[in-house]
Computed example of a mutant assay.
Amino acid sequence: MSTHLDAELLAHLQTWQGRSETWEDLLTPAPLRALSATLDREDALPVAGTELPPLWHWLFFLPHHRQSDIGPDGHAKRGGFLPPVPLPRRMWAGGRLQWHAPLKVGDTVNRVSTIESVTHKAGRTGDLVFVLVKHQLHNAHGLCLTEEHDIVYRPAAQPSDPVPAPVAAEKHATWQRDITPDDVLLFRYSALTFNGHRIHYDRKYVTDVEGYPGLIVHGPLIATLLLDLVRRHTDLPVRSFEFKALRPTFECADQRILRVCGEPDAQGSTIRLWAQDHEGWLTMQATAELGKPF
């Protein structure tokens, strides 16, 4: 399949702008128990009324595509709600979230999702397409969460592709934690989020087809680990969070370490967060704003 995007094709993809869909889900306790175990936490068992930790809403509103609708990369075939971008590599590049009220176990929640924009950029390795999706989550009391989700589509890797220079992560952080993102952790998170994307569990596929050196750690998992670090150091709730993936983090079957780091400001209300790989390269950066309990 050609990865060249001409003006006519881009205009077609941009007809998806403004499309929306609404899903309803019931926030049940079982996924929370499972993610708590996956993150190696000793949380109290969630019951009706337990507040969802920040980003744990990603355990809900999961796509349930039929097996016959799954594409070769493990994602649903292109088209439908998201535009059919003809570029083979799809990544969650970052996002911005604002909490307005708590989400709780037992809530029935509606999520309204809208394609805000479809944009094109010429990158070092060819065409890039960025899709911005806005989600708004409402329970019976009103709006609880607004989220902007950045998706990037990239061409297949080529041996001649230039390799961007990595950025060294800061060496010192007030808060830090080391995690081994082995294939079991990646599989459990994929299962919890019903994520069939083969780059996270199929080493032969990710190396032979997509050209990466090993399994890729989920961007949302790294973001969740960053806010989990915040929760391990303060009880103040997160009011807003933004994150950007800068470089893939690889499992590579050799017990590599992922380090998550946090640096609170003098007031303890703004936390700079970042993740680094086993070589000390910066892979994700983020900022969390904390506030008083709702």
Rank of each mutant, 00 (worst) to 15 (best):
A245E: 11
V260Y: 12
Q267D: 15
W274H: 07
V260L: 12
W274D: 01
L246A: 10
D265I: 03
C252I: 14
F243N: 03
P264W: 02
T270G: 00
G262Y: 07
T283G: 07
A275H: 07
T283W: 14
E251Q: 14
P264Q: 01
G268Y: 09
A275W: 02
Q255R: 11
E251H: 13
S240M: 00
G280A: 05
R256G: 08
T249D: 05
G262M: 12
C252G: 09
G268D: 04
F241S: 00
T283M: 13
P248Y: 14
Q255F: 08
D254K: 06
A266S: 05
L273E: 02
E279V: 06
L282C: 03
E242G: 10
P264M: 04
Q276G: 01
G268V: 05
D277M: 09
W274M: 04
Q255V: 01
A245G: 15
F250D: 06
E263F: 01
T283H: 12
H278L: 03
G280Q: 07
R259Q: 10
A245L: 14
W281T: 01
P248I: 09
Q255D: 08
A266E: 12
W274V: 01
R259A: 04
T270W: 00
G280K: 06
E251R: 11
D277L: 11
Q267C: 04
E242P: 08
H278R: 10
L258S: 04
K244Y: 10
E263W: 01
C261Y: 06
R272T: 07
Q267E: 11
S269Q: 08
F250H: 15
L273G: 00
L258N: 02
L273S: 01
A245C: 15
V260N: 06
F250M: 13
V260C: 07
W281Y: 10
F243H: 13
E251I: 14
T283R: 13
G280Y: 07
E242R: 15
L258Y: 09
P264K: 01
L282P: 03
R272D: 11
L273P: 02
D254R: 11
G268A: 02
A253C: 08
